[in-house]
Amino acid sequence: MRIHVRHVTTYTYDTPAHSITQLLRLTPRNHQGQTVRKWRIDLDCDGQLKASEDAFGNTVHTLSLAGPVGALTVAADGELDTLDTNGIVRGAVERFPVGLYLRETDLTKPSAELIEYAKALEGPDILTTLHNVLARIYRDMRFDKTPTQATTTAAEAFALKSGVCQDLTHIFLACARTLKIPARYVGGYLWRADGDARQQQEAGHAWAEAYVPDLGWVGFDPANGISAMAAHVRVAIGLDYLGAAPVRGSRTGGPGERLDVAVSIAQNQ
């Protein structure tokens, strides 16, 4: 499947910002199910983008701009070929042993209720357990498609019984790690099978990967109750949202920031 992605983030400031610093994780890499044909990041301001690799193997760009900056547009744009691999991710950049992905983070720390919930989902083998978790989250949690800016923890989202894809992924991670299954966060894009060939979305997508002995890393999309497929474009991984966030930024000055995100995804056979 050939997927074209254009992800445009626009910031506008009531009073121009003095300076802006951002870390961008907006560049996908290849694995067996995904080949990047072309990809670029454009800025509408004069500024330097420095590329590097983070500890998890993600491509990161640091952006620093000296002000005054009244508005800034960051556009990631590119094209990939993807294959359906039944969610199994092979040939990706792996920098850590699997055991690292059992780490608890602030965002994925489970509450007592969440631990109890997870424990009831344990199946006869790991793959069954993971499918139980996937199915139950999909059933029990309401998927809220409107993006929020606030960062919610797994425990908070679980208590609300709803959340954006990021929150449902955190709940999935908390469950998996509670059951001693290594799991990680994936940030990327999803071409929705139930939509048009060209789709406008308000944000990127997020899902989880869990480690199954003999299979390796397998993608689970709790917001849609499915395994990751050819329609999932994998951009960055981390222990939670913070490790894979497309943009982490800060600025001095520039009160009254307005943020506008537009993601367009098109599929051509």
Partner: peptide
Amino acid sequence: EDLVWQNPAFRPEMVG
């Protein structure tokens, strides 16, 4: 291994 990988004071970001 878990004393390293699960150690809250271990910083994966520092690897490499």
